[in-house]
Structures are given as C-alpha cells and as structure tokens.
Design a protein around this nucleic acid. Structure first.
Lengths: 228, 228
DNA sequence: ATTTGCCAACCTGTATGCAGCTATGGTGTG
DNA sequence: CACACCATAGCTGCATACAGGTTGGCAAAT
C-alpha cells in the first residue's frame, strides 16, 4: 500500500496497515475540521477515494465511532459528532490530570530524542509566522504531542494521553482561529520551556508545562464560548 | 440471541446491539480465563456458536484487539494476549491514580443508588462463603465496579476507569485462586468501608478505599509472581 | 537419520450481493 | 393552499465468495 504513509505516526499497538491508514487519514480530517461536526460520510464514497472496498472503510469508521469521533446510524450514514460542551469540559479536566501524572512515569532515556525533535519544531514554528497556515500549525502540535507522549514510560497512561489528545484537539481547533496569534506565541513559549526542562532532564516539569498550556487553551476556549 | 444479555452492563456509548453482545460475551470469557492467554479463536467457529456470519464476529474481535485483550494475525487467527508483566505493572499503577482521581469528580446524586447496590452485594457475598465459586465472585466484583464507576461524574475518567478495569481484572483473576479466602475477606471489608463512605456521602473516600484495595491485590499478585 | 523444500489445508483480509431501514420528495386529498 | 401519505432512492448491516498468507506435515535429497 502506502509507500511512506506510516511514518511519524505513533504505533502504540500497530494494527493492520491498510485499515489503520484510512483510520488515521479520516481522524486527521475530522480533527482538522475539514470534516466539520454534523457532516455525513458515505462508505461507498470513501471506498472510492481510497480505492478499496467498503469493508476496510467500515472498519476504520467503527474505530472512529469507538473513539467517539463519529456516530453511525443505520440507513443514514456516519456523521461527525458535535462538540458536546459537557464532554468537552470533562475531557479537558481529565487531560490536565493526565499531564500532571506524566512526571510520575518518566522515560528518561527518551529525553534526548525529544529534545532534538523540539528544536526542529522551534525552527518550523518561526518559519510559520505570519502565514496563518492552520494545517501546518496543527501538524506541529501533533508532532509535539507525539514527542512528549514518548516521554511517558507507562503504557496505559500513554495510550490514554493519546486517546484524549485527539478528542480535545478537535474541539480546541474549532475556536483557534480567533486566537491564532496568541496560540502561536503560546506554542513558542511552550516549546522553549519544554526544551529547557528537557535539557535539565526534568520530565516531571515537561508534564507541568504541558498542563499549564492546556489550561491556557482551556481558558481561551471557555471565554470564547461565553462570549458567543 | 441473548434474551436479557444487555442488562446491568454499562452503556457508556451504546454501539450496535448484536456486535456488542458478542463483544461482551467474549470479553467476559477472556476476563474469566475461560479463554486462557494464548488460546486461538477461529472466526468461523464463533460465528457458528452465535448463529451469525463472520462479519459481526470480526467486528467484536476487532474491538477486543483495540482493547488489548486479543491479537489477530493474518493467516493464523485471533489469540488471547498473554499477561505481559510490564503492561501489568503499568496498568495497576495507572489504576491506582485513576481511583485517587475519582473524588475530584463526584456524582453525588448517584450515591444512594450505589449504596443500595452495595448492600445487595454484601448479602450475596455472605451467601458465597465456603463455595469457592470463582465465576460468581468475579461477577460480584464486576457489579461493584459498575456501581463505583457510576459515582464518577467525568465521562472521560469513567471510560478510562472502565477500560483498564477489564484489562486488570483478567490478570488479577489468574492468581486469585491462591488467595481466594483472603480476597473474599478483603472484598467484604471493601464493601463495608464503601458502604460507610456512601452513608457519609463522601465519594472521595470511596475512591481512596478502592485505591487501597487495588494496592492490596497488587501486593498479593506481586508476591505471587516473585514466588513463582 | 537429518535436513530441506514443497504442497495442501486452514485462517484471516477483502470484495461484493442482498436485505432492512431511513429520509425525502412528490402526489393526492381535505 | 395545507397536510398527510406513500413510493423511491440511498444508506448501513449482514452474509458470502474469493484472494492472500501461514503453518504443519510429508517426501525427497543429502
């Protein structure tokens, strides 16, 4: 199949290749809001696009539903779920706790690799200034998440951290446009702070930094919601 | 199919009926060790048993794999995953943290219902003394888990709590036979303590009680592992 | 006797046909 | 003109046929 499709995406438990490729592609589209909430997806349509039959597409859609990103109804189709404010609040509160927990299971030997990744991301971030390229920005966050995720030595926490990152990122992305410059500056700060923590080998600090910036984003989203 | 199969099992995000029934049946068999680790399951065989085609069976098996309970390899079959000691330690450590977190998201209005459930479980537990009925004992733990799970007001935490309960229960069950009387007494204590906490409306205490008894079980499993 | 190569049976992954369900637009009636 | 009903198109859920992959055993060569 894909020549280099499964590159820097995480492989916590690498399942089948083809289905997973479709799953990740659709997941990213949903999180990028290219598939906005409420949009109806057809299995036949997707099968044509990926040049496969309906079967693998169905498998991918079932995984998405299991992740809470879509909802499939018989006779209708698979629609992207909306952003339930309650679920949103729960997910963010939970993510705060998860990040705080990160320092209790540090994978110290991963710190150097993470640091070099962070430095690369810093360069790419400065190249991004003034472009307002949402997708590149999200991709950057995506890779930051993976880099920090590898710093967690506990498999269960790592899986959960990953799972709710995607659910949260989708919601967060829907309001980011109004705060693009702020988020850009915030991400620059976060990268700086994380780089410093990694140089000191202090993974617990990385978790707290992440926790704080999640809280910052949460605050912005909350104020946007109350404003609207 | 099952006439009353979807009774007191949780419906965090109720998916399709038929597939979910098969999924729960297989999950319980795996957690009860009726399907021991390493056992090979055939799709055709299961399809015959449940009087359906391979398709819904495959969906259930994929969800089990996603939960980490099975592993499917092309040309071979679906085998029940073994108990990786590392994963075991990670899951237990993570569950400790989750239980401690429970009190931060208390669903106070659920406390009375939980209390009445606990009282029923206490009666059923005394009726269980001296019988060494593993399956009934596990069912009891199962229902205790659901009762306490409903006390969590945060959806994300509730889902995660549920998810890793099943992964842990399977491992824990594999060594329980050696400590049956101890676990029985321990469960009686846990029920008493939880009942007291619920009478006081102190859900945070419920979380800590649960955390402690998870730690007790962990200690027993660990000592058993080192002994073997 | 041991090793190596091959083949056949079996299992999963994929594609496709069919049945059941849902939504929508058109039509007939009040 | 408004409303209710029905037919129809399109979708998902399920069953099944086919293709690709793996394993174990048998046979032949060393």
């Amino acid at each position: 199949m894909g020549e280099s499709a499964t590159n820097e995406t995480s492989r916590i438990r690498a399942p089948r290749g083809q289905v997973t490729d479709i799953y990740r592609a659709l997941r990213d589209r949903i999180c990028l809001l290219r598939y906005p909430p409420g949009m109806l997806l057809g299995e036949h349509e997707l099968a044509e696009e990926f040049t496969v039959s309906r079967t693998p597409v169905r498998q991918a859609l079932q995984r998405l539903e299991y992740d809470g990103l879509t909802e499939t109804r018989n006779g209708v189709g698979t629609m992207v779920t909306g952003v339930d404010p309650n679920a949103f609040r729960d997910i963010y509160a939970f993510r705060l706790r998860l990040s705080e927990m990160m320092g209790e299971f540090p994978a110290e030997d991963e710190a150097p690799r993470a640091l070099s990744t962070i430095l690369l991301l810093q360069d790419r971030l400065v190249a991004l200034r003034g472009q307002r390229d949402m997708e590149a920005f999200w991709q950057l966050n995506h890779e930051l998440h993976h880099a920090t995720n590898r710093l967690i030595a506990n498999l269960a926490l790592r899986e959960t951290h990953e799972r709710y990152y995607f659910q949260a990122s989708r919601i967060w992305y829907s309001v980011i446009e109004a705060f693009f410059e702020e988020q850009l500056a915030d991400l620059a700060n976060e990268l700086n702070e994380i780089a410093g923590a990694l140089r000191a080998g202090d993974i617990r600090a990385v978790g707290y930094i992440q926790r704080n910036h999640i809280a910052f984003g949460l605050h912005r989203v909350a104020s946007a919601h109350t404003a609207v």
